[in-house]
Design a protein around this nucleic acid. Structure first.
Lengths: 201, 201
DNA sequence: GTCTATAGGGTGATAGAC
DNA sequence: GTCTATCACCCTATAGAC
């Protein structure tokens, strides 16, 4: 009995390891073929299995996309947690955030497509996966608040600004910095705008 | 001989008409299934043909995407040609441009995906189709110049701002106006920034 | 847990009859 | 110009042997 319980622990670990391996292979293939081009047969081949064996580890292809989607937001969250927020220097803080966000998007086109566009016909994140993205967004909102940015329309304007820099960078100068290098100027423009007239009030 | 030449004229017209019909059906299907989900068999069914007959009108599926891509940029161009550019009112002009651009993107998700994202795995526009997009961009640049916007980095900042508003609107509030309504504020922020200190010089 | 086999579709593209 | 037939694949998912 003790032995069986012991091995089941080991098995659960192994299982998790295999799942991780499959997901890593899925990212590699998605990078190469686009997120919508991911195929289970090829994914199985990549990890040395036959396609049906994947169903031991994931319920469906949609479940794989779900895990990847949630992982993307967890990575974004971790990246943001590493950024320093200096309430005394909103421009510097936002410029650094913008660059980090563009770098994050540029580091994986497949991840960008999965997280921010609707590139997979017929798939959308499950409620569970979606909740991870909402939590990540909430975290960003909290950090913006520390910079004195708290009006909803100002937050929406900021996300649009960063999303725009990133999407232009990826679509029109992938691997370059034509839009990335505008981060500081964009941050100055934005901060000037949201703090405009604040001292008068 | 004269008769043959006459009929060949009619045939060329008919052919062009059929091509137009096929492209219209392609847009309908792409709207429904996503641009990457377009299938030639279904497209043929939609126009009452068998799939191989499409090859009489288009060399390949990529050629169909090419025509759609070029048509998208011609439509964008036509839309912009209808906008009034008032050099005395850059904020109003840009606010209207931004709204029009967001409306243009929102009017067809398939068109947006085809023109501005890389949603079709394995396809990119042919040089000819790409040239149409470059011409359209050049036209925008010329109109920005009439507003006194001529520094390349300012133009890039503006395209990022509009692209960001549109992509956030489509991804997070399709059919709504959560980001669209920020167009005027964004234009004010932007114009204040690019004209900052101009009088001093 | 992994396999083979297969269900039940789908895909773009081509050959050749009419 | 349109068709049928077909090539040579692709796909996700399931049943059931081992």
């Amino acid at each position: 009995m003790t032995a069986t319980a012991g091995t089941s622990h080991v098995r659960a670990r192994r299982r998790e390891q295999t799942r991780t391996e499959i997901l890593a292979a899925a990212w590699r293939l998605a990078e190469r073929d686009g997120i919508a081009g991911l195929s289970l047969r090829e994914l199985a081949r990549e990890v040395g299995m036959q396609a049906p064996s994947l169903y031991t580890y994931f319920e469906s292809k949609a479940a794989i996309y779900d895990e990847m989607f949630a992982a993307g937001y967890r990575e974004l969250d971790a990246m943001e947690a590493d950024l320093e927020v200096d309430p005394a220097d909103p421009v510097g803080t936002l410029a650094a955030s913008g660059e980090a966000f563009i770098d994050f998007c540029g580091a994986s086109l497949a991840r960008f497509q999965l997280m921010f566009t609707r590139a997979v016909p017929g798939w959308e994140p499950s409620p569970g996966a979606y909740a991870v993205s909402v939590a990540s967004y909430q975290r960003s909102v909290d950090e913006f608040a520390r910079l004195g940015i708290d009006e909803p329309r100002h937050i929406d304007l900021l996300t649009a600004l960063f999303a725009g820099l990133a999407s232009q960078q990826l679509a029109n100068d992938p691997g370059g910095d034509r839009w990335r290098r505008l981060s500081r100027e964009a941050a100055e423009m934005y901060v000037t705008h949201v703090t405009r007239g604040r001292r008068q009030r």
